[in-house]
Design a protein around this nucleic acid. Structure first.
Length: 358
DNA sequence: AAATCGGGGGT
DNA sequence: ACCCCAGATTT
């Protein structure tokens, strides 16, 4: 079964952590409110995202869409434009979908329990627990990367934390620790500790409020915790991209509504196959994707970019159409756009890297 | 359980 | 070059 935690240890952890948090909590914008909508936006936007990277997006997002109704009324293109450069764009699409659900089918009433929050798209167990504990004072746990690391060290857990059985055990531990009184502060304190003290490398154990009851620190195993499984090597792809120009406009395609970079606008192109020349690859891709024949001109840019599970090199060529009228085959929509209008479209980061030289 | 889904910063 | 980040969803 689960390790029974002795209630005295639970009390000590709660007290030490809450006292530490009272003096060490960073002043973050979403901590100045308990508006469920603001907390919700922050939690979605911070999934797999560092505070420093997400904070400016939070400010811009709330300025543009101050309420769930405002977000619900927005066009998806406008939402994606605000998410541009942040990655994991399904977060933005799901947030927008969920906002419309709340505004239009729930009469603007937010869920009030973690279980009800988790029924919304894009909200899993972590996010539901975070919103419910912070904005509704429900005594439910959170388990993010920070909390996993803290628990793996405090309880010196040697099992790989990415295994389902270990994760389940960690949820149980986290649940046993959340206090009934200030669950939101406690959950944020756990994450804050992981982010600022109990860091992945060279943790600041000397400054840790849990130092005296940390089993890893006692055994000197903190550098070996948490244990994680190895990740597969990421492949690399050679990509050819067509900057097709006509009368001062470029041909852009809107990517399909789901999947990689779903809903974003891009310059068309595709993978170079084995033993295939760039020019042939580009002509073939554009024939397949747009149904037109092109003339391939000079190389405009070479850009390297890393995604979550593969890497690419983009070779961008200036092109013109030789015959045919472009039709959206691989895209949901095509559009001729002038340089001056590029700013209106949400592009993948890899496209932003070369867009300036066109 | 494994794969998919971005991008940036630290080491 | 590899790891990690206030994870969720699909296969």
């Amino acid at each position: 079964m689960q390790d029974p935690i002795d209630t005295r240890t639970v009390q000590r952890i709660r007290r030490a952590l809450l006292a530490w948090y009272a003096h060490n909590a960073r002043d973050l914008p979403w901590r100045r409110t308990r508006d469920p909508y603001a907390v919700w936006v922050a939690e979605i936007l911070l999934q797999q995202t560092r505070i420093d990277q997400g904070t400016p997006y939070f400010e811009r997002f709330l300025a543009a869409f101050p309420t769930v109704e405002a977000l619900a009324r927005a066009q998806e293109d406008a939402v994606l434009k605000l998410w541009e450069g942040l990655g994991y764009y399904a977060r933005a699409r799901n947030l927008h979908r969920a906002a419309r659900l709340v505004a239009f089918e729930r009469g603007g009433r937010f869920p009030e329990t973690a279980e009800a929050w988790q029924a919304l798209p894009g909200i899993g167990r972590y996010t539901a627990g975070a919103i419910a504990s912070i904005a509704f004072n429900e005594a439910v746990p959170v388990l993010d990367g920070n909390v996993k690391r803290v628990l793996a060290r405090v309880f010196d857990i040697a099992a790989p934390i990415d295994q389902a059985a270990t994760e389940s055990r960690l949820w149980t531990l986290a649940g046993a620790l959340v206090p009934p009184r200030r669950p939101g502060d406690f959950n944020q304190a756990m994450m804050e500790l992981g982010a600022t003290v109990c860091t992945p490398k060279t943790p600041s154990c000397a400054a840790c409020p849990l130092r005296t009851l940390c089993e890893a620190a006692a055994r000197g195993t903190q550098a070996e915790r948490p244990v994680k499984g190895k990740k597969p090597a990421t492949p690399h792809y050679e990509i050819v991209v067509a900057a097709i120009e006509k009368n001062g406009r470029f041909l852009l395609g809107k990517r399909p509504p789901s999947g990689l970079l779903g809903g974003l606008w891009e310059f068309p192109g595709g993978k170079v196959q084995a033993r295939e020349a760039h020019e042939q690859a580009l002509k073939r891709e554009i024939r397949e994707e747009l149904g037109v024949e092109i003339r391939v001109g000079g190389l405009a840019a070479v850009v390297k970019h890393a995604y979550s599970h593969f890497k690419v090199t983009l070779n961008v060529y200036r092109c013109t159409i030789e015959s045919g009228t472009p039709r959206p085959v691989a895209h949901s929509e095509l559009k001729w756009v002038s340089r001056a209008q590029f700013g209106r479209y949400a592009f993948p980061k890899a496209n932003l890297k070369f867009i300036g030289v066109l």
